[in-house]
Amino acid sequence: MSRAMAFEKISSTPPRPRPIGRVNWLGLWTLYRKEVMRFVNVFTQTLAAPVVTALLFFAIFNLALGRAAPAWEGVTYEEFLAPGLIMMTLVQNAFANTSSSILISKVQGNIVDVLMPPLAPWELTVGFAMGGVSRGLVVALAVLLGLLPFAPIEIHSPLIAVYFAFMASLMLSLLGMIGGIWAEKFDHIAAVTNFVITPLSFLSGTFYSLERLPENWHIAAHVNPFFYMIDGLRYGFTGYSDGDVLVGALLVLLVNVALFAWAHRMMATGYKLKA
Protein backbone atom coordinates (compact mmCIF):
# COMPACT_ATOMS: atom_id res chain seq x y z
CA MET A 1 0.00 0.00 0.00
CA SER A 2 1.47 3.28 -1.01
CA ARG A 3 1.72 6.21 1.28
CA ALA A 4 -0.70 8.14 -0.88
CA MET A 5 -3.36 5.47 -0.53
CA ALA A 6 -2.96 5.38 3.21
CA PHE A 7 -3.26 9.14 3.33
CA GLU A 8 -6.39 8.98 1.23
CA LYS A 9 -7.86 6.43 3.55
CA ILE A 10 -7.31 8.70 6.53
CA SER A 11 -8.65 11.78 4.82
CA SER A 12 -11.75 9.96 3.61
CA THR A 13 -12.76 9.17 7.17
CA PRO A 14 -12.86 12.48 8.99
CA PRO A 15 -13.33 12.31 12.74
CA ARG A 16 -16.97 11.93 13.43
CA PRO A 17 -18.73 13.86 16.16
CA ARG A 18 -19.22 11.78 19.26
CA PRO A 19 -22.92 11.36 19.76
CA ILE A 20 -23.90 12.85 23.09
CA GLY A 21 -26.87 11.30 24.77
CA ARG A 22 -29.15 12.90 27.26
CA VAL A 23 -26.28 13.08 29.70
CA ASN A 24 -22.74 13.97 28.62
CA TRP A 25 -21.18 11.35 30.88
CA LEU A 26 -17.66 11.79 29.51
CA GLY A 27 -17.85 15.56 29.93
CA LEU A 28 -19.28 15.31 33.42
CA TRP A 29 -16.60 12.81 34.42
CA THR A 30 -13.88 15.03 32.94
CA LEU A 31 -15.08 18.10 34.83
CA TYR A 32 -15.35 16.10 38.04
CA ARG A 33 -11.87 14.64 37.59
CA LYS A 34 -10.44 18.09 36.95
CA GLU A 35 -12.05 19.38 40.14
CA VAL A 36 -10.66 16.48 42.16
CA MET A 37 -7.16 16.63 40.64
CA ARG A 38 -7.08 20.32 41.47
CA PHE A 39 -7.14 19.74 45.22
CA VAL A 40 -5.20 16.47 45.15
CA ASN A 41 -2.32 18.25 43.41
CA VAL A 42 -1.82 20.59 46.38
CA PHE A 43 -2.73 18.07 49.06
CA THR A 44 -0.50 19.64 51.72
CA GLN A 45 -2.70 22.72 51.62
CA THR A 46 -6.03 21.03 50.96
CA LEU A 47 -5.80 17.82 52.99
CA ALA A 48 -2.84 17.82 55.37
CA ALA A 49 -3.31 21.34 56.72
CA PRO A 50 -7.01 20.93 57.67
CA VAL A 51 -6.34 17.57 59.31
CA VAL A 52 -3.44 18.91 61.37
CA THR A 53 -5.53 21.93 62.39
CA ALA A 54 -8.42 19.73 63.52
CA LEU A 55 -6.06 17.51 65.54
CA LEU A 56 -4.52 20.57 67.18
CA PHE A 57 -7.96 21.85 68.16
CA PHE A 58 -8.71 18.46 69.63
CA ALA A 59 -5.44 18.54 71.57
CA ILE A 60 -5.81 22.02 73.03
CA PHE A 61 -9.42 21.56 74.09
CA ASN A 62 -8.57 18.34 75.85
CA LEU A 63 -5.48 19.83 77.46
CA ALA A 64 -7.42 22.87 78.63
CA LEU A 65 -10.19 20.71 80.07
CA GLY A 66 -7.80 18.22 81.62
CA ARG A 67 -9.59 15.80 83.87
CA ALA A 68 -12.46 18.20 84.39
CA ALA A 69 -14.04 17.01 81.15
CA PRO A 70 -17.80 17.31 81.44
CA ALA A 71 -20.05 14.60 80.08
CA TRP A 72 -23.51 14.93 78.59
CA GLU A 73 -25.82 11.99 79.10
CA GLY A 74 -22.94 9.56 79.17
CA VAL A 75 -21.07 11.16 76.26
CA THR A 76 -17.55 12.28 77.16
CA TYR A 77 -16.24 15.60 75.87
CA GLU A 78 -13.83 13.79 73.54
CA GLU A 79 -16.68 11.86 71.93
CA PHE A 80 -18.70 15.05 71.77
CA LEU A 81 -15.92 17.13 70.20
CA ALA A 82 -14.76 14.66 67.52
CA PRO A 83 -17.84 14.85 65.24
CA GLY A 84 -17.95 18.62 65.73
CA LEU A 85 -14.38 18.99 64.47
CA ILE A 86 -15.05 16.61 61.57
CA MET A 87 -18.05 18.69 60.50
CA MET A 88 -16.22 22.01 60.94
CA THR A 89 -13.35 20.85 58.72
CA LEU A 90 -15.70 19.36 56.14
CA VAL A 91 -17.74 22.54 55.88
CA GLN A 92 -14.76 24.85 55.47
CA ASN A 93 -13.12 22.65 52.83
CA ALA A 94 -16.18 21.96 50.72
CA PHE A 95 -16.80 25.71 50.52
CA ALA A 96 -13.16 26.49 49.77
CA ASN A 97 -13.01 23.97 46.92
CA THR A 98 -15.80 25.24 44.70
CA SER A 99 -15.43 28.93 45.54
CA SER A 100 -11.69 29.00 44.83
CA SER A 101 -11.97 26.86 41.71
CA ILE A 102 -14.58 29.07 40.06
CA LEU A 103 -13.11 32.37 41.21
CA ILE A 104 -9.56 31.50 40.12
CA SER A 105 -10.89 30.35 36.72
CA LYS A 106 -12.78 33.61 36.37
CA VAL A 107 -9.83 35.78 37.37
CA GLN A 108 -7.42 33.88 35.13
CA GLY A 109 -9.93 33.78 32.30
CA ASN A 110 -9.92 30.01 31.78
CA ILE A 111 -13.55 29.71 32.89
CA VAL A 112 -14.37 29.73 29.15
CA ASP A 113 -12.70 26.33 28.88
CA VAL A 114 -15.36 24.99 31.21
CA LEU A 115 -18.26 26.91 29.68
CA MET A 116 -17.45 26.11 26.01
CA PRO A 117 -17.70 22.30 26.05
CA PRO A 118 -21.11 20.73 25.43
CA LEU A 119 -22.09 20.58 29.10
CA ALA A 120 -25.58 21.58 30.20
CA PRO A 121 -25.92 24.01 33.10
CA TRP A 122 -27.09 21.23 35.40
CA GLU A 123 -24.08 19.14 34.39
CA LEU A 124 -21.76 22.03 35.25
CA THR A 125 -23.52 22.45 38.58
CA VAL A 126 -23.27 18.75 39.39
CA GLY A 127 -19.65 18.48 38.24
CA PHE A 128 -18.44 21.38 40.37
CA ALA A 129 -20.57 20.39 43.33
CA MET A 130 -19.34 16.81 43.32
CA GLY A 131 -15.75 18.04 43.31
CA GLY A 132 -16.46 20.02 46.47
CA VAL A 133 -18.38 17.11 48.00
CA SER A 134 -15.40 14.84 47.36
CA ARG A 135 -13.00 17.26 49.04
CA GLY A 136 -15.33 17.67 52.02
CA LEU A 137 -15.82 13.94 52.49
CA VAL A 138 -12.15 13.04 51.95
CA VAL A 139 -11.03 15.65 54.49
CA ALA A 140 -13.71 14.50 56.93
CA LEU A 141 -12.56 10.91 56.60
CA ALA A 142 -8.94 11.97 57.08
CA VAL A 143 -9.82 13.88 60.27
CA LEU A 144 -11.79 10.87 61.51
CA LEU A 145 -8.82 8.56 60.92
CA GLY A 146 -6.46 11.07 62.52
CA LEU A 147 -8.65 11.30 65.63
CA LEU A 148 -9.12 7.53 66.01
CA PRO A 149 -5.95 6.96 68.08
CA PHE A 150 -6.94 9.72 70.53
CA ALA A 151 -10.71 9.65 70.79
CA PRO A 152 -12.96 6.73 71.65
CA ILE A 153 -15.04 6.97 68.48
CA GLU A 154 -17.94 4.62 68.02
CA ILE A 155 -20.44 5.14 65.27
CA HIS A 156 -23.97 4.94 66.60
CA SER A 157 -25.82 5.05 63.27
CA PRO A 158 -23.55 5.11 60.20
CA LEU A 159 -26.36 5.91 57.77
CA ILE A 160 -27.31 9.11 59.59
CA ALA A 161 -23.66 10.11 59.84
CA VAL A 162 -23.12 9.58 56.11
CA TYR A 163 -26.36 11.41 55.26
CA PHE A 164 -25.38 14.53 57.20
CA ALA A 165 -21.78 14.44 55.98
CA PHE A 166 -22.96 14.24 52.38
CA MET A 167 -25.67 16.86 52.74
CA ALA A 168 -23.34 19.27 54.52
CA SER A 169 -20.60 18.97 51.92
CA LEU A 170 -23.18 19.40 49.14
CA MET A 171 -24.63 22.49 50.81
CA LEU A 172 -21.27 24.15 51.25
CA SER A 173 -20.15 23.17 47.74
CA LEU A 174 -23.25 24.82 46.31
CA LEU A 175 -22.76 27.88 48.52
CA GLY A 176 -19.14 27.98 47.37
CA MET A 177 -20.25 27.89 43.73
CA ILE A 178 -22.73 30.69 44.27
CA GLY A 179 -20.08 32.68 46.14
CA GLY A 180 -17.42 32.02 43.52
CA ILE A 181 -19.72 33.08 40.69
CA TRP A 182 -20.85 36.20 42.55
CA ALA A 183 -17.36 37.31 43.67
CA GLU A 184 -15.28 39.47 41.36
CA LYS A 185 -12.05 39.40 43.30
CA PHE A 186 -10.40 37.43 46.08
CA ASP A 187 -11.37 40.09 48.61
CA HIS A 188 -15.04 39.30 48.09
CA ILE A 189 -14.69 35.60 48.74
CA ALA A 190 -12.31 36.23 51.65
CA ALA A 191 -15.01 38.40 53.20
CA VAL A 192 -17.62 35.66 52.86
CA THR A 193 -15.21 33.07 54.28
CA ASN A 194 -14.08 35.28 57.18
CA PHE A 195 -17.41 36.79 58.12
CA VAL A 196 -19.90 34.05 57.32
CA ILE A 197 -18.55 30.55 56.79
CA THR A 198 -15.81 30.42 59.46
CA PRO A 199 -17.90 32.03 62.23
CA LEU A 200 -20.88 29.78 61.49
CA SER A 201 -18.69 26.68 61.47
CA PHE A 202 -17.12 27.70 64.80
CA LEU A 203 -20.12 28.94 66.70
CA SER A 204 -22.87 26.50 65.72
CA GLY A 205 -22.09 23.86 68.32
CA THR A 206 -18.76 22.45 67.16
CA PHE A 207 -17.14 22.84 70.57
CA TYR A 208 -20.03 23.04 73.03
CA SER A 209 -23.57 21.96 73.62
CA LEU A 210 -26.09 24.68 72.85
CA GLU A 211 -27.35 24.30 76.40
CA ARG A 212 -24.37 26.43 77.37
CA LEU A 213 -25.69 29.37 75.40
CA PRO A 214 -28.11 31.93 76.90
CA GLU A 215 -31.78 31.19 76.33
CA ASN A 216 -32.41 33.81 73.64
CA TRP A 217 -29.66 32.33 71.44
CA HIS A 218 -31.47 29.01 71.22
CA ILE A 219 -33.98 30.35 68.71
CA ALA A 220 -31.18 31.65 66.50
CA ALA A 221 -29.51 28.25 66.68
CA HIS A 222 -32.64 26.42 65.65
CA VAL A 223 -32.94 28.17 62.30
CA ASN A 224 -29.21 27.75 61.57
CA PRO A 225 -28.58 24.87 59.15
CA PHE A 226 -24.98 24.64 60.40
CA PHE A 227 -26.31 23.73 63.82
CA TYR A 228 -28.41 20.90 62.38
CA MET A 229 -25.51 19.58 60.32
CA ILE A 230 -23.19 19.42 63.33
CA ASP A 231 -25.94 18.08 65.55
CA GLY A 232 -26.96 15.47 62.99
CA LEU A 233 -23.43 14.20 62.48
CA ARG A 234 -22.96 14.13 66.25
CA TYR A 235 -26.14 12.09 66.60
CA GLY A 236 -24.84 9.68 63.96
CA PHE A 237 -21.64 9.23 65.96
CA THR A 238 -22.76 9.35 69.58
CA GLY A 239 -26.52 8.96 69.64
CA TYR A 240 -26.68 12.32 71.45
CA SER A 241 -28.33 15.39 69.92
CA ASP A 242 -29.31 18.86 71.05
CA GLY A 243 -32.01 19.36 68.45
CA ASP A 244 -34.45 17.23 66.50
CA VAL A 245 -32.49 15.08 64.04
CA LEU A 246 -35.46 14.51 61.73
CA VAL A 247 -36.15 18.25 61.48
CA GLY A 248 -32.45 18.74 60.73
CA ALA A 249 -32.46 16.05 58.03
CA LEU A 250 -35.44 17.64 56.29
CA LEU A 251 -34.11 21.18 56.67
CA VAL A 252 -30.72 20.42 55.07
CA LEU A 253 -32.48 18.58 52.25
CA LEU A 254 -34.74 21.56 51.56
CA VAL A 255 -31.85 24.02 51.75
CA ASN A 256 -29.88 21.87 49.31
CA VAL A 257 -32.73 21.71 46.80
CA ALA A 258 -33.07 25.50 46.96
CA LEU A 259 -29.31 26.08 46.66
CA PHE A 260 -29.06 23.67 43.74
CA ALA A 261 -31.83 25.53 41.94
CA TRP A 262 -30.07 28.83 42.63
CA ALA A 263 -26.64 27.62 41.48
CA HIS A 264 -28.21 26.00 38.42
CA ARG A 265 -29.99 29.25 37.56
CA MET A 266 -26.68 31.14 37.75
CA MET A 267 -25.04 28.61 35.42
CA ALA A 268 -27.99 28.70 33.02
CA THR A 269 -28.21 32.48 32.77
CA GLY A 270 -24.43 32.93 32.85
CA TYR A 271 -24.68 35.46 35.69
CA LYS A 272 -21.24 37.08 36.00
CA LEU A 273 -19.87 34.19 33.92
CA LYS A 274 -20.78 35.20 30.39
CA ALA A 275 -20.62 38.75 29.10
Binding site: A64, D187, N194, T198, P199, F202, L203, T206, F207, R212
Partner: peptide, 21 residues
Protein backbone atom coordinates in the same frame (compact mmCIF):
# COMPACT_ATOMS: atom_id res chain seq x y z
CA UNK B 1 -9.46 42.14 54.98
CA UNK B 2 -7.15 39.16 54.62
CA UNK B 3 -4.12 40.58 56.43
CA UNK B 4 -5.60 42.36 59.45
CA UNK B 5 -9.37 41.95 59.80
CA UNK B 6 -9.44 38.20 59.10
CA UNK B 7 -6.78 37.28 61.71
CA UNK B 8 -8.40 39.54 64.33
CA UNK B 9 -11.79 38.01 63.69
CA UNK B 10 -10.53 34.44 63.85
CA UNK B 11 -8.73 35.20 67.14
CA UNK B 12 -11.99 36.59 68.52
CA UNK B 13 -13.78 33.44 67.38
CA UNK B 14 -11.25 31.32 69.30
CA UNK B 15 -11.92 33.51 72.30
CA UNK B 16 -15.70 33.12 72.01
CA UNK B 17 -15.52 29.38 71.56
CA UNK B 18 -13.17 28.88 74.52
CA UNK B 19 -15.22 31.18 76.68
CA UNK B 20 -18.47 29.34 75.94
CA UNK B 21 -17.09 25.80 76.01
Amino acid sequence: LETIVGPILSALLFLAVFAIA
